[in-house]
Computed example of a mutant assay.
Amino acid sequence: MQELLIFYCSQLKLETSSITGESEPVEYQIEAVEESVTIFESHNVAFDGSLCVDGEGVGVVIRTGTSTIIGQIADMTTGQPVNKSRIEVQLVRFVVFLIFAATALGLIVFIIGGFVHRWVNVISLLCTAFLVCGIGMVPTGMQIFK
């Protein structure tokens, strides 16, 4: 991306519809414009991407990259933070719910198993309770075989 200050032109007409929205080619000049005129309305600064349809001109590059007006517009559109979609937010909430539900269910199964087995081999009870809940919480699809 570049902006050029035109310092010589002879009947120069540029087609800038992709940048400024002008439907007809615009005639450019070398005369300076007032400070109140925007860069899009000044006809002595050409943008990269303009197509010369008539005449000739010579200019010097005055801005490049994100320093140009088009570069600043592009930077504003690409510099936005990425927002999560609704489904991503809902999936995170569901996963957090499943984690708490699995933990609570594992504790309940562990306590019931402890009373049933009179708290013998507690490590085995703990591992079995949480493994059963962990495996039970993993979603699996139902497959029908013909």
Rank of each mutant, 00 (worst) to 15 (best):
M1L: 15
M1V: 14
M1R: 10
L4C: 11
L5F: 12
F7K: 03
Y8R: 08
C9F: 04
C9H: 02
Q11P: 07
L12G: 07
L14W: 00
S17W: 05
T20V: 11
G21N: 02
S23F: 05
E24V: 10
P25C: 06
E27K: 06
Q29H: 07
I30C: 09
I30F: 02
A32H: 06
A32P: 02
V33R: 14
V33K: 14
E34Y: 08
S36T: 10
S36H: 06
E41I: 11
H43Y: 15
N44V: 04
N44H: 11
V45A: 01
A46W: 05
A46S: 13
F47Q: 04
D48Q: 13
G49H: 09
C52W: 01
C52I: 04
V53W: 10
V53A: 08
G55M: 05
G55K: 02
E56M: 15
E56D: 13
V58M: 08
G59I: 00
V60S: 06
V61L: 04
I62F: 03
R63N: 09
T68Q: 01
I69V: 07
I69Q: 05
A74R: 06
A74Y: 03
G79M: 02
Q80N: 09
P81C: 00
P81I: 00
R86T: 14
V89A: 04
V89R: 07
Q90I: 10
V92W: 02
V92E: 09
R93S: 11
V96Y: 02
I99H: 05
I99Y: 00
F100H: 12
A102Y: 03
A102P: 13
T103G: 09
L105D: 05
V109W: 06
G113K: 04
H117R: 13
R118W: 06
W119A: 15
V120N: 00
N121R: 10
N121Q: 11
V122T: 14
V122Q: 08
L126W: 13
L126R: 11
T128I: 14
A129C: 15
F130P: 04
F130K: 01
L131C: 14
L131S: 12
L131H: 02
V132A: 14
C133V: 06
G134R: 03
V138L: 13
V138N: 10
M142C: 01
